[in-house]
Design a protein around this nucleic acid. Structure first.
Lengths: 90, 90
DNA sequence: ATATAATTTAGTTAATCATCTAAATATTTT
DNA sequence: AAAATATTTAGATGATTAACTAAATTATAT
């Protein structure tokens, strides 16, 4: 999980909705796309941002790319956020 | 606290450092500025982003503007982040 | 090996963002 | 009320971002 990139990724409602969808079950890019009114390339971009931030994992299954939440990643973002103001220093 | 704006505000290292400074004590814009190598207008912009996001409060004291953490705001961001993946729906 | 399906990459465009300089506003001091 | 101090607002610029269309890639099915 890359903190800075993760926060940038999370600062977009579309990407947060993708994460919520993935919290219920793993989904292919195409399945995710059906929940949005954007083109496939735009969705692919968002998935790439989430991937680069270390918030999701990708795996291939036939011709589909399956996306899943990276376990503990969002929890870690939340914790590091709290650490900013709670820890003595760093 | 405006969730979307707050995440955008937090996605910047300078602004996170400002929040960390404010977690130790309330500071004027000028005092904050001494910790960074940016111009006063740039700092003012960052403070405005934090203010608009509902993460900090502003109050005047003489000719200084004192900034302080908005109590509970960052905790609320962290909680809403966790809620994305933990709550049944919404 | 060719066609189809799923998805990404390439390249463009419009919008947003961080930064700067210069000017304006608010407050205190002389 | 004029000067000095603290900070913001205005306006410009270069960089990043989200979206699109068109083309390329990867894998299955005929």
């Amino acid at each position: 999980m890359y903190f800075n990139e993760a926060l940038g990724a999370l600062a977009d409602p579309t990407r947060r909705k993708i994460l919520k969808l993935l919290s219920k079950r793993n989904l292919s890019a195409g399945e995710i796309g059906r929940h949005f009114d954007i083109t496939a390339p735009s969705l692919s971009h968002h998935l790439s941002v989430l991937l680069m931030a270390g918030l999701v994992n990708q795996s291939r299954q036939g011709r589909s790319l399956i996306y899943s939440l990276k376990p503990g990643a969002i929890e870690m973002v939340a914790n590091k956020l709290l650490a900013i103001i709670k820890e003595p220093n760093k």
